[in-house]
């Protein structure tokens, strides 16, 4: 089995007396597109900063490509590109200069990819970075990250500020193409609130809440396990207490909606016993799985 690209084990970090990370553990395998979901303040950005040695954890283990970020940060950073949630550039540089500046640190800089992405995002290379809008700054940061051809791409809310058109273009085309260029080698670690946008790309994900992983699962596995069952009855719907195995129950006069986690067949059988007229079961989206996990 290949070595994990990211390995967090019992990660702890505190800001003063507040626990930002409280024993977070996860593993990311090479070639995966890994989703990292959580509510605001759950500890996502803190965990990413620990990966990049921007924060020193108070406890636990951090490994990136099997290396310790504290002691081998330069070797790790040579293989990693990061797009932060708040993107800023030196205001005196133009778009072209920002990319040249980044390229000076990257021996594998892909000039062709840079040009193609500038064209795709319709950025003016001579435009000063200070004149870029928030969305354009994000685009520029994404170009810098993709053209660097890293083995690990870490994106922290990468699509915030992008308009829907660019967002779709970026996720479906750019990110897809990036991974497809070297399948099995290029890994992505995406922290986002816009889970629906990345639905098709995510292979595996972790839901983090109050600094702790509350759910780690493969995307397909999650879709198979988490299902929503709806049933309609001729008379009054059975009481909610009857379905204690369901994660959530919403009952109306003649219908009932249940969310189940891996025990869908059992619930379906019970509903049939209650002589449900109309019985449907569908997989939950990752966003709905996330909502169920943190609720």
């Amino acid at each position: 089995m290949s070595e994990p690209v990211i390995e967090l084990d019992g990660l702890i970090h505190r800001y003063g007396k507040n626990d930002a990370l409280n024993g977070l553990s996860l593993e990311v395998e090479p070639g995966q597109c890994y989703g990292f979901f959580g509510r605001n303040g759950a500890g996502k950005t803190t965990a990413i900063k620990c990966l990049l040695n921007l924060l020193r954890p108070a406890g636990g283990k951090v490994r990136v490509f099997g290396m310790d970020p504290v002691h081998e940060e330069a070797r790790i950073k040579a293989r990693v590109a990061y797009v932060p949630d708040f993107v800023a550039f030196y205001p005196w540089m133009s778009v072209r200069e920002v990319l040249e500046y980044q390229a000076s640190f990257r021996p594998n800089w892909n000039k062709g990819s840079e040009e193609a992405l500038i064209g795709r995002f319709q950025l003016d290379p001579a435009q000063p970075a200070s004149a870029l809008s928030k969305g354009q700054r994000t685009q520029l940061a994404l170009i810098g990250a993709i053209a660097a051809e890293p083995d690990l791409l870490i994106l922290d809310e990468p699509t915030s500020g992008l308009d829907p058109l660019v967002r779709r273009e970026f996720i479906q085309t750019v990110i897809g193409a990036y991974q497809d260029a070297a399948p099995g080698r290029r890994t992505m670690f995406v922290s986002t609130h816009l889970i629906t946008e990345f639905e098709g790309l995510i292979d595996r994900f972790t839901v983090i809440d109050r600094g702790r992983a509350v759910l780690t699962m493969g995307a397909d596995e999650a879709r198979g396990k988490y299902r929503r069952v709806r049933a309609r009855f001729e008379g009054e719907a059975p009481p909610a207490d009857e379905f204690k195995e369901a994660k959530s129950v919403r009952r109306e006069a003649r219908s009932i909606e249940l969310t189940v986690n891996g025990n869908g067949d059992e619930v379906l059988a019970k509903l049939r016993r209650w002589k449900a007229l109309d019985l449907t079961a569908e997989s939950l989206s990752l966003e709905e799985v996330f909502l169920e996990a943190v609720r």
């Binding site: 990049l52 990061y82 932060p84 708040f86 800023a88 550039f89 640190f105």
Partner: peptide, 17 residues
């Protein structure tokens, strides 16, 4: 103040350098 510190520190060069 410019907000570029994080970006700069993640470029592939040791922080000590």
């Amino acid at each position: 103040q410019l907000g570029t510190m994080e970006w700069q520190l993640t470029l592939p060069m040791a922080m000590s350098k």
